[in-house]
């Protein structure tokens, strides 16, 4: 009998508590924590690696937009069998074209220096290509910047020639 009254009391209290604030139940907390931890277990993507990826993405994206860096969220999520990286970026404002160009020029000059050092013994064809790309769209620009890694598709042909 005690049990019944205890449960009754809990229900009444619980009812008012729930109307005050829609608190997340402990079951939902458990389920969400478990989802995150299992995705990490399954992919070997440690929190450190996720943080590194987050920082690099911020660096890359701040070229185009001004954003709330603290609020940027990067999460692994699972939809059915498909694993997805979900990136949520609170944008404060998009950057002006001139700003993007100027930051590109800065980057270009620094990366050109780097390329000159590392590829000084490469054929001159590549240098010509770089020049023509300079006035084409941003995506190509980005790929060229990123291609001294030696691993991406842009780099591979060169490597094979060597």
């Amino acid at each position: 009998m005690k049990d019944i009254f205890a449960e009754f009391y809990n229900k009444v209290i619980g009812f008012f508590r729930r109307t005050e604030e829609a608190e997340e139940s402990s079951k939902d907390v458990a389920r969400n924590r478990l989802r995150v931890v299992l995705l990490q277990d399954r992919t070997n993507l440690t929190p450190e690696l996720m943080e590194k990826m987050r920082k690099e993405l911020i660096e890359l994206l701040s070229k185009y937009v001004e954003m709330d860096k603290e609020a940027l969220e990067l999460n692994l999520e699972q939809e059915g069998d498909q694993m997805a990286l979900m990136l949520s970026i609170p944008v404060l404002r998009a950057k002006e074209e001139s700003e993007i160009e100027s930051s590109e020029k800065e980057e270009k000059s620094s990366s050109d220096d780097a390329e000159d050092n590392s590829e000084s013994d490469e054929k001159t064809d590549d240098a010509k290509e770089d020049d023509s790309d300079a006035d084409s769209d941003d995506e190509d620009e980005f790929e060229n910047d990123a291609c001294d890694c030696g691993k991406c598709s842009k780099c591979n042909p060169k490597d094979k020639q060597k």
Binding site: G14, S25, S26, K27, D28, A30, R31, L34, R35, L38
Partner: peptide
């Protein structure tokens, strides 16, 4: 009372 994951939750996860 939403204090334990349900069978469906576990199966889905």
């Amino acid at each position: 009372s939403n204090d334990m994951m349900s069978v469906d939750d576990v199966v889905e996860i």
